[in-house]
Each structure stands twice: as C-alpha cells, then as structure tokens.
C-alpha cells in the first residue's frame, strides 16, 4: 500500500511538472520546431528586443499593482469589519462574486463600462482593466485576511482599548501589525491572479492597453513559437522571485 502510494505520487508530480519543465527546456532549443537541435539564447534575445512585449509587460505590471493596492486595502478593511460583527449582505455578495464564472464577470463589466461611457465620454483603457480586476480580487482578499483574523486572539485588541487606545489606534497599532502576514499573502494572491488574467482583461481592455497574457494568447493561437517558451520561463522565474520575496516579508 505504502509503496503503491509512493509510486503513484511520483507519477502525479511528474504529471504536474514535466509539461512545464519540457516547455522550459525547449526555450533553449536552437530550432523553431519541436526537435532538439542544440543550445541557444536566441529566443530570449528576441523577447528582450520585442518592444510590444515590453509595453505589454509594463501594462500588466501597472494593472496588477493598481488592482492589488485597491483590492488589498479595501478588502482588509472589509474583512476586519466583518470579523468584528457579521455583515451578511456584503459577505453573501462576495460569495456570489466568487461563484460567478469569469466570463460572466467579464461581459457584465464590458456591458457596464460601455453603458457608463455613453454618458461619461470616456474610453476603455488601463483604468477599466484595473477596476475590473479589483472587482474579482476583492473576495480573495477578504477570504485570506478573514482566515488570518480568525486565528487571532481578540484579547490583543481589548488589551489595546484597555490601555487607552481608541478603536482606530487599536486597529492601527495592534491588529494591523499582527495581520501583516495575511495581508502580504492576500496581496500576493491578487497580484498573481491579476497579472495572469486573460478572460476579463481581453473583454475590458482598450485598444492601447494590451497586456502580456493577451499577447501570449495571440502567439499561442498562431502556433508553436520558442519565444513564448522563453517568455514563459521569464514570467515563471519573476513570479517565483516575487513569492520568495513575499515569504521573506511575511516572516518579518
């Protein structure tokens, strides 16, 4: 039984990792077709020379940062308020937004922005993408931060009030510092989800706000291209570095 499970687990881990490792390995393949013909940095050079990709990366980072800041800040405050005393209306709304398929979120935001812009004379752009991402990231933040709050002893906050801190001071000087690891985890989740999003983004992005996932999507549809392999490796390494950094922040 134990041997069977161990054998099975190694097959399962292979299933999870082999496709990604193969993808990475072939980013160094000298040939455009999927047959190994020697080592090259060519595709990485191509990626770094491609200005459209650079613009897409900047767009994606700006969007992810904006959405992360807005969603983490408002989600943390909301989680704290819900933890203090239940807010069924908001809680159920967040739950509903979690259950809403991404494509439905996308088209409803598209319809909403189009309708609103008829009166506001604005256009789809980076800002609409940020707002759209905040909309679906909020529930993740509340979920993660509330989980952290539930493990926290409420007597710390009572002690602060007892020692003369107002409610705001108790939140600012005691609860918030203790909540820090949860907030970092929530922000990290927001950032990766926002950075990676294609479905909602492609619907609400303006003409000049193409993001990295939109470009990868277009390239993937066109066919096998070693540049996408190289780009995938770069993104994975960058996200990995971010997770390690966040882990450090969390342990502080």
């Amino acid at each position: 039984m134990k041997r069977f499970l161990a054998l099975y687990a190694s097959v399962a881990y292979a299933f999870l990792y082999v496709p990604l490792l193969v993808l990475g390995a072939f980013s160094f393949n000298a040939s455009r077709i999927a047959v190994w013909q020697g080592f090259t940095w060519q595709w990485y050079r191509n990626v770094f020379r491609n200005e459209a990709l650079l613009d897409g990366t900047i767009h994606s980072v700006v969007i992810a940062l904006g959405a992360t800041i807005l969603a983490t800040a408002s989600g943390t405050l909301a989680a704290y308020a819900i933890w203090k005393r239940s807010a069924p209306l908001l809680t159920n709304s967040l739950y509903l937004s979690l259950l809403t398929p991404e494509i439905v979120t996308g088209v409803s935001l598209l319809a909403f922005f189009q309708w609103a812009f008829r009166y506001l004379h604005l256009q789809l752009g980076l800002d609409t993408v940020i707002l759209a991402h905040v909309s679906f990231c909020l529930a993740y933040v509340v979920l993660v931060v509330i989980a952290r709050l539930r493990t926290m002893d409420s007597s710390f906050e009572e002690a602060a009030l007892d020692l003369g801190a107002t409610e705001w001071q108790a939140f600012r000087h005691v609860t918030l510092p203790l909540l820090w690891p949860g907030i970092v985890a929530a922000a990290l989740l927001c950032f990766t989800v926002s950075f990676d999003d294609y479905v909602v983004t492609s619907l609400v992005a303006g003409v000049n706000s193409e993001t990295l996932p939109m470009m990868i999507y277009a390239m993937a549809r066109r066919g096998v291209s070693p540049e996408v392999n190289a780009l995938s490796v770069l993104i994975t390494v960058a996200l990995g570095a971010l997770i390690l950094l966040a882990g450090r922040l969390e342990r502080r």
Binding site: F156, E158, A159, L161, D162, G164, A165, H173, V174, L178
Partner: peptide, 27 residues
C-alpha cells in the same frame, strides 16, 4: 474602555507579540 481609569490583566496576558517588553509597557 479607553476612557476608563481602569486597567486589566488578561487571563492569557494579551502581551502584544509584535512589540518588545519596553514597547508593551510604553503602549
């Protein structure tokens, strides 16, 4: 609570884990 000239020693102490001994007493 913060306007009452009454202070509490809690059952589990509730000493703030993110502050030093000095900072806890100065709070």
């Amino acid at each position: 609570p913060y306007r009452r000239n009454v202070n509490t020693v809690f059952q589990n102490y509730a000493v703030f884990p993110h502050l030093t001994v000095q900072q806890n007493v100065a709070f």
